[in-house]
Design a protein around this nucleic acid. Structure first.
Length: 569
RNA sequence: CGGAACGUAGCGCAGCCCGGUAGCGCACUACCUUGGGGUGGUAGGGGUCGCGGGUUCAAAUCCCGCCGUUCCGACCA
């Protein structure tokens, strides 16, 4: 491909709206062009990369027996109401104004709808269906270029099985395929245990790329082999426990104490013996929640524990109406209205606790949660902190930012039950289909790749997803000697099966061409110039390492082929 | 949705405080020059100054409203 005939609008300056390297470089290299917040056009050079990523995904999905299909982006709102996900997605789902249609943010409902119609026997399964399509999410704040956008490409796959063992197998196949996909794309990644969130289901894992641009926090200890999204991460902290003395509760005045720290400072209480009370609504039903001291409530864990579609903290007026007090003075004793209660596991059977009196300016002491509260269940509800002991070996946890590039779920029967997608087993008994759901963000792979492989000059593509394998730089292309060699090399490299971008621009200075080559970042830059041609040589530069080799003209094609193979592993 | 900043040529910016001819660099066009790390020069083309109102003889500039973009937070399968 000749650069003079190809459309690559490179930029010398960094557009003001781009903050992270991958976004800046995609714009500067002429790969993408922003249209609106969180909406991008993919230009020819960028789309080549997208297509390569999608092809790798296709090959690995096909290899585990996946069948590609194509589903509508426009969905009837009704089907999303049946699974409760219009509410679960809330404002994140785009709604069509002049029809009762929505733009699909994912496709569990549609897949289940097909399964419901056609998959009726245990003999019809297992099935793996996948698609690589545009998804729409009305992100409140798109950011980081294509990493969080309103319209993006996702590969999503769905498995249908007739047994839980079958689901485990399908899940494992996807896990293995995902590892191969990220390996082939040249990404450094790690896997964490994850929350199923609004997707529902029994278990899930995320494929993560460590990055300061990441929006997820992961807690891990490499030595123990523990890694989890902060949404589900746990640690091994001792329970608060009981003390022998267990007197009756006693109210005391705390006029200037709202936060746990105030109680600690003013009354010399140990923070962990304070039971912090919070009120949350789960699907519009209020709950009273207790945490120890300054432990932070993990909303993901709360949502899972309450099996709720949507949760939110109570507003000030609601707090007052339900408990009789404002935030900071709420507790289990003397509640204005009876509220269902749950507490963090650290508080299990704890006594000698201090908590709000449900009367502003007062607290109770000597609270025995077993005696004085009405706690229905204890769940792990805390947000872990860096340095806490990991749950496997008790070694200190580290917390790092990461970008989620893939997520696999054991969905179970949430959607098949809601949409009545049932099958008959060998005994003629009806069961809901057992499903799995597996997603990969295509643009996030590209963005993470650039985040991991760039330097001050530009991108350094891995050969597997590079837009072209070889970039030929014709230095002083006006020279017949240079032009003839470069032309021939271009033809020979293409004939050898390599993808070639040939900078055949005339009147462009060498430095300018080198800068462009470094910016675009093809794995190999073949520099054809009089300097080495007069000795019968051509220079081959490896972009990622910076290594340069002077190669006899007749060997260049073989050297390039060998280097591409070498760089691909 | 809370807090903040910014909207002037394709991109990066100045001009605004103190109202009076719309500017600079890059990119683009033509010619000359140079030719292994963004050559140097000459001459050009391109902007309803985000939109709408108001004040004024006169608004990019002052006032009000809206829209957009970005950043921090909330949210985020």
């Amino acid at each position: 491909m000749r650069l003079t005939r190809y459309f690559i609008p490179t930029l010398k300056e960094i557009p003001a709206e781009a903050v992270i390297p991958s976004h800046q470089l995609m714009l500067r290299a002429g790969m993408i062009r922003g249209l609106s917040s969180g909406i991008y056009s993919l230009l020819p050079l960028g789309y080549r990369v997208w297509k390569k990523v999608m092809q790798i995904i296709r090959e690995e999905m096909d290899a585990i027996g996946g069948m590609e299909l194509h589903l509508p982006a426009l969905n009837p709102k009704e089907i999303w109401e049946e699974t409760g996900r219009v509410e679960a997605f809330g404002d994140t789902m785009f709604h069509i104004k002049n029809r009762d249609l929505v733009l699909a943010p994912t496709h569990e409902e549609i897949i289940t709808h097909i399964a419901q119609a056609f998959v009726h026997s245990y003999k019809d399964m297992p099935q793996i269906w996948y698609q690589i399509q545009t998804k729409f999410r009305n992100e409140p704040r798109p950011k980081s270029g294509v990493i969080r956008s309103r319209q993006f490409l996702m590969k999503d796959a769905y498995s249908l099985d007739n047994s839980w063992e079958g689901l485990d197998e399908s899940y494992q196949k996807h896990f293995d395929a995902y590892c191969r996909i990220y390996d082939r794309c040249g990404l450094n990644y790690f896997v964490v245990g994850a929350s199923s969130g609004a997707m529902g289901g029994s278990g899930s894992q995320e494929f993560m790329v460590e990055s300061d641009a990441g929006e997820d926090l992961c807690a891990f200890n490499m030595e123990s082999g523990y890694a989890a999204n902060i949404e589900v991460a746990t640690s091994k902290l001792p329970p608060i426990g009981r003390v022998d003395e267990n007197p009756e509760v006693e109210k005391f005045a705390t006029p200037n104490a709202k936060a746990i720290d105030d109680l600690v400072e003013q009354f010399g209480l140990p923070a962990e013996r304070c039971a912090k009370a919070l009120v949350y609504f789960a699907d519009e039903k209020p709950w009273l929640i207790f945490m120890s001291g300054n432990d932070q409530l993990n909303e993901s864990k709360l949502q899972t524990a309450l099996k709720a579609n949507v949760i939110r903290p109570a507003h000030d007026e609601e707090l007052l109406a339900l408990t009789g007090a404002n935030a900071g003075s709420i507790g289990p004793v003397n509640l204005k209205t009876k509220l269902p209660q749950i507490a963090d596991t650290r508080l299990e059977h704890a006594n000698d606790m201090v908590s709000g009196a449900n009367e502003n300016g007062f607290h109770y002491r000597n609270i025995d949660l077993d005696r004085d509260a009405d706690i229905q269940a204890y769940h792990d509800l805390r947000m872990v902190e860096e340095g806490e002991p990991d749950p496997i070996n008790g070694l200190p946890l580290k917390v790092k930012k990461a970008i989620e590039v893939g997520h696999i779920f054991k969905l179970g029967t949430k959607y098949s039950e809601a949409l009545k997608a049932n099958f008959l087993d060998a005994n003629g008994t009806e069961h809901p289909i057992i499903m799995g759901s597996y997603g990969i963000g295509v643009e996030r792979i590209v963005a993470c790749h650039i985040e991991q492989r760039h330097d001050k000059d530009g991108i350094a593509w891995h050969p597997s997803i590079a837009p072209f394998h070889v970039h030929i730089t014709g230095v002083k292309i006006e020279s017949d000697l240079v032009r003839e060699h470069a032309d021939r090399l271009h033809d020979h490299l293409e004939a050898a099966g390599l993808e070639v971008l040939y900078d055949d621009r005339a009147g462009v200075s060498p430095g300018f061409k080198f800068k462009d080559a470094d910016l675009l970042g093809m794995p190999l830059n073949v520099i054809v110039g009089e300097k080495h041609l007069k000795d019968g040589n051509i220079e081959v530069k490896i972009r990622h390492s910076g290594e340069r080799r002077i190669v006899p003209v007749e060997d260049v094609v073989d050297v390039c082929k060998a280097l591409i193979n070498e760089l691909s592993v």
